[in-house]
Structures are given as C-alpha cells and as structure tokens.
Design a binder for these strands. Structure first.
Lengths: 127, 127
DNA sequence: CTCTTATTTTAGTTTGATCTAAATTAAGAG
DNA sequence: CTCTTAATTTAGATCAAACTAAAATAAGAG
C-alpha cells in the first residue's frame, strides 16, 4: 500500500487536508470551511482519494461524515510531514506552495453569489 | 528541500532510476539501456529533475556523465523505498505500476529504426 | 577539419490530476 | 409530502508532467 501512500502525500492539497485532520477529527464541511479557495466538490474528491489510499477513515454521524486520519498508515512519512508542519520556515511557504502547484481550471466568479434561486416566488410565472 | 523530495519520489519513473542507481553509479547511457521503453531524452529530463532536487549528483568522465545517488538527501524516505524494492510482492507489481501510471504520448514505432541518415552518401545530390 | 558517440535541450504532443459547476443522494425537520 | 442541509458524484475544462522526435552540444578519434 506504499504506492498509494507516496502519490497521496505528493499532493499539496491532500497534505493540507491531512494537516487539518492531524489536530483532530473533522466533518467534510469543516474541512471545506478551512479551505476557502476550493469548492466542496474538490474537497470531497480529495477525501475520497485519501480514503481509498487508507490514509483516512470516515464515520457517519447523522447527516455529517466525520473524517479521521489513520496514523498507522501514515507512519512511514509522518516524521517528514510533522517537520514540514511545525517548521516555521515551512509555514511561510505554505501559501506560495498552494498557489504555485495549483492544477485544474482557475476559480471563476459565481454567476450570482448571494442571490438564491427564487423558484417559488411566482408560481404562476408565465415566462 | 523536502517538497522537492516528495514530488521527485512520487514519480514511478524517477523511482526506477533511483533503484538502478541504488546498487551503484551509472552513466546516463547505462540508465537508458536499462529502461528500453523510453527515449534517451526522457531519461535525461528525469535525471535533471533528480539533479535539481538534489537527490543525485553527476560527474563528467570523458564524454560520459556518471550519476550517483545522494543517500543523505534520500534518507527520510530510504526505508520505504528499500522496502518496496526488496519486497518480492513489489517486484511483481513493478511492470504494472509503470504501465498504469505512464504519462505523455504513447511510444510510437520508429519510422526507420536501423536506417541511419545517409547524409554523406551522395555529396553532389541535386535535390 | 569530419565522423562518431554520449548527452542535453528544444519544440510540440498526449494524458491524467485537479479543478468547477451542476446534478444527485441522503437524512433531518416541519 | 416539501424544504433545507451535508456530502458525493458526474460531466466537462484546464493545466502541467511526461513523453517523442529532432536539433544542438560536447568530446574523443581519425
């Protein structure tokens, strides 16, 4: 299972998720709130990758999903990760790292951010 | 320098090169001979990545370049790599791993494999 | 000088990882 | 049932890693 470990840990975004979970279990929503620069969908996809790699586990609690890091699975690289996260120099590099290694389409402005769908406003709407 | 280490070691192709160099120093050509499924250029590019990451070093010897692995730089992940390489199960997975994670264009048949450019054949060539 | 061998570099192509936006699933509340 | 909230899944877009082929560089031999 080390192949999946290496590829999973190679992604800055997944390392960011692991760092969040390192301090304690979180729901998928809480993880997303801590990562304002990506959509919920993107977070969910990365969580699935970590789940398939066996690096995190998930437990349902009502309508929430609580994620937990599996330290046993991460033990081969844990010292390196912890050093990266505790080293002051690394903290400074975190933002730059995320910005530079970003993949996929650039974030687009939401077409109408705060305007909720007024589906039920005019029920007898004729156009 | 751990960021470069993680990304460098995340590539199966680069791990293959590191595994070859693990047993002893090799010239760029010898490395390429051991990897028949890629061009010399591809090997050279990956060697440059490993060089820039500080995971290998290079020394010129006549017209050859001898590459050597820098074990100090690889020490944080060396145990994991060595386990992968010595584990019998992993050996079976090596080919599959390379085939599955392959990127870039598929290998094309050389247009004329053994036919060398006959540049000097007809010196007074009129077209 | 030319020819050969060893290697790197350049230019262009392909592919998979990562992302967005939207659709879907699921579960609790009214 | 509908409405809301939480999360996943799908379909499509973008981007950079990894590759190929060919050109360029370098160095030894004739």
């Amino acid at each position: 299972m080390d192949l999946a470990l290496l590829t999973a840990v190679a992604s800055p975004r997944r390392r960011e998720i692991l760092r969040l979970l390192w301090d304690g279990d979180l729901t998928a929503g809480a993880i997303h709130e801590a990562m304002p620069d990506v959509t919920f969908g993107a977070v969910s996809l990365q969580l699935k990758v970590l789940l398939d790699a066996g690096l995190v586990e998930c437990q349902a609690d009502r309508q929430f999903r609580v994620y937990r890091v599996r330290r046993e699975a991460l033990s081969p690289v844990a010292p390196m990760l912890e050093q990266m996260w505790t080293d002051a120099l690394w903290r400074l590099k975190l933002k730059a790292e995320l910005a530079e290694t970003r993949r996929g389409p650039k974030p687009r402005r939401r077409s109408r951010p705060a305007l909720a769908r007024r589906r039920s406003l005019s029920k007898t709407e004729d156009r």
